[in-house]
Nucleic acid binder design. Structure first.
Length: 474
RNA sequence: GCCGGGGUAGCUCAGUUGGUCAGAGCACCAGAUUGUGGAUCUGGGGGUCGCCGGUUCGAGACCGGCCCCCGGUACCA
């Protein structure tokens, strides 16, 4: 009896073409973050359960993967990178980790949720956070970083929308809603994009029964309270300045409103100064974010060419997350990219290269007596920084080896047999040009005779010649 | 979690009232073609018909249970 090769649901392998796409994306993001001067951090996949659990609600607890160890400690796999960051901040002194601590982290996280389209139980997050900065310059920097990252990824159009939990708290005061109800209100408002105003209104009041027969429990607000929420949500403009003006008018009599609105005004103003205009960053008061732990500005980014993928990049300020470890709050603000979700979106938009190989050159082995020549040429190219694969399979024929290059999309094949050896030359075949030129040829003999896409060059000029050909392919 | 639709070759799928129904196309491999990936032709390998049980002389098909996938919906730190 053999073992059936399989994976538990929600888990997947990434084959080389998928890994190359993911790595390319991660490298681009890392480039932006390091350009901003953030530093990398790694934490273990496994944490103590109580460390993970603190900020999570009851249903969040359910989706933690439990882990056992020989000591029978209560452990789990991390479900995000923010909680481990909070642990690190609390655990290391300022001597070891001087503040502000600005770190990036790219790593897998695990959630034992029901898998869905594009949603797995293991996925990569790429986080960017500033810890220890009260000033909204840190928030500005995160939002700008989101813009620059999406720009560098060449995602096409994008829009970073931001709002503020503090402003939403003003709304609670304005509408006479208690803090406990506020949590539910934010959760429901977060669905606005997805389900529309009408359903949100009903869910905020008495609830309803949806098309599938499910009962949606209502929050229990009065009609007057919902009216006030709708007045707030009615503040919409492509101009951040206009939104701020309207907001000040609406909350003219709400206590503390000017100070909180000043915060987002400064962020907006900073962004204008840096050239992040209304076309890329919008002040959208309907942004709430599901997470309970946000305390200040919140933001999320959508792709304007693929809005159905929802928020691909989200974050906010969470000043109290370290509280439960240290008993005191430390200001923090950050954002997280759903790498796999964004990758899925970019793949669908056709913006991801479909590389299958890292090699740019395949050295074919055509004649056993020339074995060491093949080795020598391969290492010559490698030492010149040209990614090169020496064909290691058992096929003897050139045809098989070219087919191999074809299957892996290796653009150049180096052919060196007895003929080339005798003349002191090498033959290099451009696979793409070869394919194009062979297309109209129906006759086999003619096809073979034309040696499509091939050039020869002196053996001594191998490296320069290949380099030139690769440069032309770009 | 709930509603609906599915599961037959690597992929997409056909399979009649239960009785040569283990099939097609594509892909793959080999040969035609011993130094050329394409095209063409010829040949070939491949399946626990999702799993377990039941009905039947006989089940891919019918019945029951389970698993998984897809669409919708809910949840999502």
């Amino acid at each position: 009896m053999t073992t059936s090769p399989r994976l538990s649901r929600g888990l997947r392998d990434l084959l080389p073409d998928q890994m190359l796409a993911r790595q390319q994306m991660i490298d681009t993001i890392r480039g932006v973050y390091e350009n901003y001067g953030f530093v990398p951090l790694s934490t273990p996949a496994v944490e103590f359960l109580d460390v993970l659990s603190g900020s999570a609600g009851a249903e969040a607890q359910q989706s933690i993967f439990r882990v056992t160890n020989p000591e029978h400690e209560e452990l789990g796999l991390r479900f995000d990178l923010t909680v481990p960051l909070a642990r690190v901040i609390a655990q290391y002194s300022e001597r070891e980790l001087p503040r502000p601590f600005r770190r990036y982290q790219v790593a897998p996280v695990w959630r034992a949720d029901k898998p869905d389209k594009g949603r797995y139980r293991e996925f990569i997050q790429f986080d960017l956070d500033s810890v220890g900065v009260v000033s909204e310059i840190a928030d500005t920097e995160i939002i700008a970083g989101m813009c620059d990252t999406l720009g560098a990824l060449d995602v096409g159009g994008y829009l970073v929308r931001f709002s503020s939990r503090a402003v939403l708290n003003l709304l609670l005061a304005f509408a006479g809603i208690s803090a406990e109800q506020g949590v539910d209100v934010f959760r429901v408002l977060d669905k606005l994009d997805k389900v529309g105003v009408e359903k949100v209104r009903r869910e905020l009041m008495n609830g309803y029964v949806d098309e599938s027969g499910d009962t949606i429990r209502g929050v229990g607000l009065t009609s007057e309270q919902v009216d006030r929420i709708e007045q707030f949500l009615a503040i919409k403009s492509e101009s951040r300045r206009e939104v701020l003006t309207s907001l000040r008018e609406l909350f003219a009599h709400v206590e503390n409103a000017p100070a909180q609105i000043d915060v987002i005004e400064r962020i907006s103003s900073n962004l204008y100064v840096l050239g992040y205009g209304d076309d890329r960053v919008s002040l959208d008061l309907s942004i709430a974010r599901g997470l309970a732990y946000y305390t200040g500005p919140v933001f999320e980014a959508i792709l304007t060419e693929a809005p159905q993928f929802g928020s691909v990049f989200g974050g906010g300020r969470y000043d109290d997350l370290v509280m439960r470890f240290l008993g005191q709050s430390i200001p923090a603000v950050g954002a997280s990219i759903g790498v796999d979700r964004l990758l899925a979106a970019l793949t669908q938009l056709g913006k991801i290269g479909k590389r299958k190989a890292t090699a740019r050159v395949l050295v074919a082995r055509m004649d056993e007596s020339l074995e060491q020549e093949y080795l020598a040429m391969t290492w010559e190219l490698r030492r010149a920084g040209i990614p090169t694969e020496l064909y290691l399979g058992t096929a003897k024929g050139v045809g098989k080896q070219l087919k191999y290059a074809d299957q892996y999309d290796i653009p150049l094949a180096l052919l060196y047999g007895g003929n080339e050896h005798a003349e002191g030359i090498v033959t290099v075949k451009d696979m793409v040009a070869g394919r194009e030129r062979a297309k109209p040829v129906a006759d086999r003999k003619e096809y073979l005779a034309q040696r499509a896409g091939q050039v020869t060059m002196p053996r001594a000029e191998l490296v320069d010649g290949i380099r030139r050909m690769l440069a032309e392919l770009e």
